[in-house]
């Protein structure tokens, strides 16, 4: 779903903090881009890698997608590739994906960020301002290394509480966890250890899990999957299925199309019989027992491991 990729142009590069660059992408024709839910991210394809980054706009009527990237020399290389971008370069990105949305029924929004985790909170602050959502932001950062600090101050005003040390933040967090009105939702983004400790502190303070939200990139995305090959037993042909292409699309490309409807793993139309091998089931149609049987699969979303799949087609 919404697997379409957008080819965008780098319009602006700014140094947001030491080691952090903000990149603004826009359509080649300068036109509007799809709107998005506050807290959404895009998946950037660059140098054979894909990385997810939070968008920092409100999501309303956007003419650009802006992300902030922390340089991580020890990472897999995605951040270095993005730091090498200059104005005029092209990038391929996914449509925005929502996995960290504000809860509409929240009485109050308590945003908690550390370091580069500030980025989705900037989006929440902007959208919250447009819709008058009561919001508090706790921001922990190292002095001199904070991205979006001026923006956060301007957007949140007195609702921003800054901490520049762990000790100070621990005090601020404890104060705020114990003083929120009933119906407050908490959103946390930052290094894994930071998020885990905030969620633990909230749970210890009696917050129900349904009120706690942490940024989880691509939670709603099935992902492109690994390449694999299927053997069609009746016609004795092999069909290769590259990453990012569904088995259904590959079968159609090989003139072996099957009846289908939703192309999303729910309707059951594109079921194909499996003679041999173990499908990677990713559908919502088959029951757990049927999936364990491995006698059939939904070819629109499910995939194969390696080259072991044989289909009765």
């Amino acid at each position: 779903m919404s697997s379409a990729l957008l080819d965008l142009v780098v319009r602006d590069v700014t140094v947001a903090a030491p080691d952090i660059r903000s990149l603004a992408f826009e359509a080649a024709d300068g036109g509007l881009l799809p709107a998005y839910v506050a807290g959404s991210h895009i998946v950037v394809h660059r140098g054979g890698r894909t990385n997810s980054y939070s968008l920092t706009g409100s999501g309303s009527n956007p003419s650009d997608y802006t992300i902030s990237v922390l340089r991580q020399p020890d990472g897999a290389g995605g951040s270095l590739a993005l730091h090498a971008l200059t104005v005029g370069d092209t990038v391929r990105v996914s449509a925005p994906r929502s996995a960290f949305a504000p809860v509409t029924t929240a009485r109050r929004h308590l945003l908690i960020a550390a370091g580069i985790g500030i980025t989705p909170m900037i989006s929440h602050l902007k959208a919250g301002g447009e819709w008058q959502r009561p919001t508090t932001l706790l921001y922990r950062y190292r002095p001199g290394a904070a991205a979006h600090l001026d923006e956060a101050r301007a957007l949140a005003g007195a609702a921003l509480v800054e901490s520049t040390s762990r000790e100070r933040f621990a005090v601020v967090l404890a104060e705020h966890l114990s003083s929120q009105p009933l119906g407050t939702h908490l959103y946390v983004c930052g290094p894994a250890g930071f998020s885990a400790s905030v969620l633990q502190a909230a749970a210890d303070a009696g917050w129900p899990a349904s009120r706690l939200h942490s940024e989880a990139f691509a939670a709603a995305d099935l992902g492109p999957g690994e390449p694999f090959r299927v053997h069609l037993a009746r016609s004795d042909v092999n069909v290769d299925v590259p990453a990012g292409v569904s088995l259904l699309e590959a079968l159609e490309g090989a003139d072996h199309g099957v009846p289908n409807m939703c192309r999303s793993g729910i309707c059951g139309e594109c079921i194909v019989p499996v003679l041999r091998g173990r499908p990677e089931h990713r559908d919502l149609y088959l029951s757990d027992d049927e999936k364990a049987d491995n006698a059939s699969m939904m070819c629109c979303v499910s995939r194969g491991h390696d080259n072991e799949l044989e289909l009765d087609l």
Partner: peptide, 20 residues
């Protein structure tokens, strides 16, 4: 036939802008 629960999961998985 689990149709309702499957439909709900399907709708929750839709991404903004998806149309069915």
């Amino acid at each position: 036939e689990r149709i309702v629960s499957r439909a709900e999961q399907f709708l929750l998985r839709l991404q903004p802008g998806d149309k069915f």
